[in-house]
Design a protein around this nucleic acid. Structure first.
Lengths: 153, 153
DNA sequence: GTAGATGCAAAATTTTTGCATGCCG
DNA sequence: CGGCATGCAAAAATTTTGCATCTAC
């Protein structure tokens, strides 16, 4: 869990980008909502709620910048809406998602839970032999029912 | 592999929808390009190439209809663009994708290749115990390099 | 002070909707 | 023939861009 944005501030500056109020606010919002995977629209609303509204153009531009310097990455749900999440510099490893089919909420799983090593040599070999496709990495979406929704059933 | 659209034609009519020229053309294009996963824009262009151009509005409306009656389903790539594929009535089972990181092409894998059963009871139990999340199904994107691109390296 | 960043408004895209006309059943 | 479907154009929604102004360094 990432606690604050100071590491990012200095990285931003080391890339030669200015540390502006807007960039700090946007990064804060993304960090504060690590578990939420906000869309541009949701980011816009969250920022408006802080009382320091920001132009949509700035949000789009800042997001592009943050993706370029690997502060954040986007994930895409089944509806095609891009949602953004902070990348912890310490854990750049691939991670996967638990997606609730009722509320649509997305939860990350990574090393907290051992993903079974489905990408075992045998499987990769079979795909390569049959399809000529060399697998290098994978992303899994696990669909199901989250704790909260299960409790409301 | 689906060969033609007659089955779909009669299903369409059994739902009470009219079998129009446009619907036939769109379905044909989707079936002919089963391996391509075309976006709306690509569908529009393909249809224009047949010499019977169709209004974009009609394409959007027809796609919605086809999704509703489960003729097609969409998949979503990392860029958030929705792409459409025919659903073979015979094999409604979940399937996965091989995505080439070079050309972006998407290939389906399903029963042709045995997906290792990563959703083993132990893993699901662990996720449930640690996250309270009940996994019911999953989608995997395998990223890598396709045969064609590998041959150009 | 100056390069780069922001805000606003206009433009470019993408998708939806209203309505007159057309065509399937 | 009657109603659903289509095409077109307008509207709505989303994202990008140009430019004047502002601000971090």
């Amino acid at each position: 869990m990432i606690e604050n944005s100071c590491t990012y501030d200095s990285i931003l500056q080391s890339w030669g980008y200015k540390l502006t109020t807007q960039r700090k606010i946007l990064l804060d919002i993304i960090i504060k909502n690590q578990d939420k995977h906000l869309s541009v629209e949701e980011l816009y609303d969250e920022i408006k709620n802080t009382g320091n509204p920001m132009g949509l153009a700035t949000i789009y531009r800042t997001i592009k910048l943050f993706e370029k310097i690997k502060f954040i990455q986007h994930i895409v749900m089944d509806d095609g809406v891009l949602r953004y999440q902070i990348i912890d510099p310490d854990e750049r490893q691939e991670h996967h998602h638990l997606i609730c089919e009722i509320c649509g909420n997305v939860v990350d799983i990574q090393d907290e839970v051992d993903i079974p090593k489905e990408q075992d040599a045998l499987f990769s070999k079979k795909v390569f032999d049959e399809k000529g496709f060399k697998i290098t990495r994978q992303k899994i979406q696990f669909y199901g029912i989250c704790k909260k929704c299960a409790s409301h059933l």
